[in-house]
Amino acid sequence: MIEIENPFGKIATLEQALAFFKEEMTVMFGGFGGVGSPPNLIEGILAKEIKNLTLIGNDTGFPNIGIGKLVSQGRAKKVIASHIGSNPIAGKLMNQGVLEVEFSPQGTLVERIRAGGMGLGAILTDVGLDNTSVTKGKQQMELNGRSYLVETALTAEVSIVYAEKADPYGNLVYDKSARNTNPLVAMAGDFTIAEVKEIVPLGGLDPEEIVTPGIFVDMVILSNGVNWKWVWEEN
């Protein structure tokens, strides 16, 4: 067994990570349809019965997969996402007025997250100008004879991401498509927690494979290997 050095104190337990979550906070999450979302952190938030969350991410997962578990159990008061169609409970809660949903086209959403991670205040885009669900409540402006929406940058109190490997510095390597939005989400949190399948010693990662530099990661926890279960369950 290899002993892992922890020079910056970034390696922690799930219990230590969960101390950073509270009600009424904003949480940004990586993942696409559940793939690339941190399973143990999501289960931990459920176990702590934290509610009234504002969730920011690509989608609302499936009813019992990924971030969809939090949405389906009524733990979120607002979601900022590109779509919610894979989770019919999210749509039901939205129509009941229980869940506020801010739709943002997928490309615009990731750019807003990237802008938040880069310290920008907003981006300009002409995508969605003809869609009232996108333009509602948003500022518009003219620039060089063209109309644009002003889309505010997105940040969160805590960002949660999922990666294949990490070292004690918090450098992250992702597994194929599970990479999806995680690198951008990692940049945009005031505090970023990475759940990983494996923690390797310093020098154990190929520098060419590192996607997220450790400077963006504040805490690393080891996943217990929860298996993905791709089964549609009616609710």
Rank of each mutant, 00 (worst) to 15 (best):
I160P: 00
I199A: 02
K136Y: 13
K176W: 07
V217C: 01
I215N: 10
A178F: 13
I221W: 11
E195V: 09
Q139N: 13
K176H: 04
T132F: 07
V127R: 05
P213H: 01
G203A: 14
M141Y: 09
P207N: 02
I210A: 08
A188R: 01
L129H: 05
A178T: 10
N227P: 11
V134A: 12
N131H: 14
A156L: 07
L129P: 09
V211D: 03
P213Y: 14
W232E: 15
S133G: 00
I210Y: 10
A188H: 04
D206N: 14
G137L: 03
V226G: 03
S223Q: 07
E195D: 12
D190E: 13
F216K: 11
T152Y: 00
E198W: 05
N180L: 05
K138F: 03
I193K: 01
N144V: 12
V161K: 03
V200E: 00
I199V: 15
L129Q: 08
Q140M: 12
N144T: 14
R146Y: 11
G137Y: 09
E209H: 15
N182A: 00
L184C: 02
K136S: 11
I193M: 04
K165F: 06
N227W: 14
M187S: 00
P168R: 00
G128I: 09
Y162F: 12
N171Q: 09
I193H: 05
E195F: 07
A194S: 05
L149E: 03
L205S: 08
T212E: 04
T152K: 01
K197D: 03
A153R: 02
T192N: 03
Y148C: 00
D130I: 04
M187V: 02
D206S: 15
Y148G: 05
E142W: 13
D130K: 14
K197Q: 01
V217A: 13
T192Q: 02
K138N: 01
D167N: 06
F216W: 15
K136F: 13
T155C: 02
I210W: 10
M187I: 07
S133F: 07
A166K: 06
P207I: 06
N180I: 12
R146S: 08
D175I: 12
E195I: 05
L172M: 02
A188L: 00
N182P: 00
Q140V: 13
V161C: 00
F191E: 09
V226E: 09
K229D: 08
A163K: 00
T181I: 15
Y162H: 00
K138I: 02
V217R: 06
V231W: 09
Y148N: 04
W228Q: 15
A194H: 02
D130T: 05
M219Y: 14
Y169G: 06
P207D: 01
N131G: 11
Q140F: 04
G204F: 12
E209P: 03
V173A: 08
V161Q: 02
Q139E: 13
L124K: 15
P183L: 13
I210S: 05
Y148L: 03
Y148V: 01
N224K: 15
W230K: 15
L143F: 12
V150A: 04
A166E: 08
D218H: 12
S159M: 11
S159R: 11
M141P: 02
